[in-house]
Design a protein around this nucleic acid. Structure first.
Lengths: 228, 228
DNA sequence: TTGGCTAATATGTCTAGACATAATGCCTGT
DNA sequence: ACAGGCATTATGTCTAGACATATTAGCCAA
């Protein structure tokens, strides 16, 4: 009965779920568990580290390991390139570049990126198509100062895809909201004005500073799903 | 110098970002890196394992480690109990139980949970309030067969919170969509019918089978944000 | 009582070595 | 040429021991 670290993780999880080790309670130390399972302490440590990353337990030096009071559920979202998202649904992908111009970025954009007001940025508007039908409307402000080297022709490769593969992103955040379709979005997506749209707003930062702010307006019925 | 596994992770990440190791390319083996950094192989392994979990590299036995072609961005969503979400925004929390009855669950619900059609389930409708104003409307179908022991008075503790703390959840999924407010939702949330609402639909499964399906309709303006 | 120092302790990390496992690709025999 | 089998190799995991680090409890002094 050799125990791998995954077996130990499973067994600890079982005891937590069965309330043998109740929420908020201390669980035995690594040394104790190692003796009980008949493995080295490092193996127990591997298992408990994984559980801590999953939010099931909380570990503190000297204080020991305790079961999380309110097990925060963590769901992982995998953000694909839009092209692959569409192809993954078994539909043909295409996109149209609707606008590409330089101009002073609006205040909400510069504010979120931490740039001075009215910083000159590049505005790109793209409509992504799935099976010939509107899929996502993308409105993007790009900070040229954060890009080294030449940018490609965004009518040939979508900004969405080029950024993911060619630019060194460091960090970012994504927020989902629901909004009534603006007249422009309604027209481009081919829906009634005021229809409920799922909006994803993303900011990304790179080594050379803030890179881009993008608002993705999804066609009605779009689902973003995650597992936990 | 580089000594800890986090330093090594950072350095490998830097080389990937600088294109020293380009996307799709093989990176040196653990033994080589260990010698280069002057650490044990296990330390390099720790660093590379972390990067693989983050989706930056892909590792295969015998084939080696290569930089991911399309670095799938993974964002982590922490799903809090609604009460804590509200309190975290600095607002007072309250909730009202609007409905609590048994009845045959609708087909979409049983289908998603993998239960026979018209399984008798408990329907709970709750309005969560933040600072006295409607925050989230919760429509929940609960499978009594998957719950062992007594259920509490859901007028005293919200189902949302009780389930998280008292039931052994095993797995589940969550999906976000945007929907026009139904007449019922509009009335309860105090918004115009047809207003765009951010919807979160969750199913959860436990050791005794499917536990619950819930639809959360958020008040306009609600943002669900994640970092990556 | 209060503040700060100290020792004890549980987790965090590292090492060196070993064996396990899964792909790969070569090397057979047909 | 081809299929199957086998050796090679890089990652995956484990061990036993050591030292590092954070945190707490207790003690002592002002």
């Amino acid at each position: 009965m050799t125990h791998g670290w995954e077996d130990i993780r499973a067994d600890v999880l079982r005891r937590i779920r069965s309330r043998e080790w109740p929420p908020g309670g201390l669980i035995p130390g690594e040394e104790t568990l190692a003796a009980e399972f008949g493995v080295a302490r490092a193996t127990v440590n591997r298992a408990l580290t994984a559980l801590a990353e999953a939010g099931v337990i909380e570990r503190k030096k000297r204080a020991g390991t305790r079961v999380a009071e309110l097990p925060v559920r963590r769901a992982r979202l995998e953000i694909p390139v839009i092209r692959l998202d569409v192809l993954g649904r078994g539909l043909a992908y295409d996109f149209k570049l609707l606008a590409d111009r330089m101009g002073p970025a609006p205040v909400p954009v510069t504010a979120r990126l931490g740039l001075p007001e009215a910083t000159p940025m590049r505005y790109l508007e793209t409509l992504h198509l799935a099976g010939g039908r509107p899929f996502v409307h993308e409105a993007r402000w790009l900070n040229p100062a954060a890009l080294q080297g030449a940018t490609p022709d965004f009518a040939t490769i979508s900004a969405n895809e080029w950024l993911v593969t060619e630019v060194s992103l460091v960090s970012g955040d994504i927020a989902f909201t629901a909004e009534d379709a603006s007249p422009r979005e309604a027209e481009v997506l081919g829906v009634a004005p005021g229809a409920a749209l799922l909006i994803a707003e993303r900011t990304t930062h790179g080594t050379l500073g803030p890179i881009t702010w993008v608002k993705l307006a999804h066609a009605p019925g779009h689902r973003v799903s995650m597992t936990f």
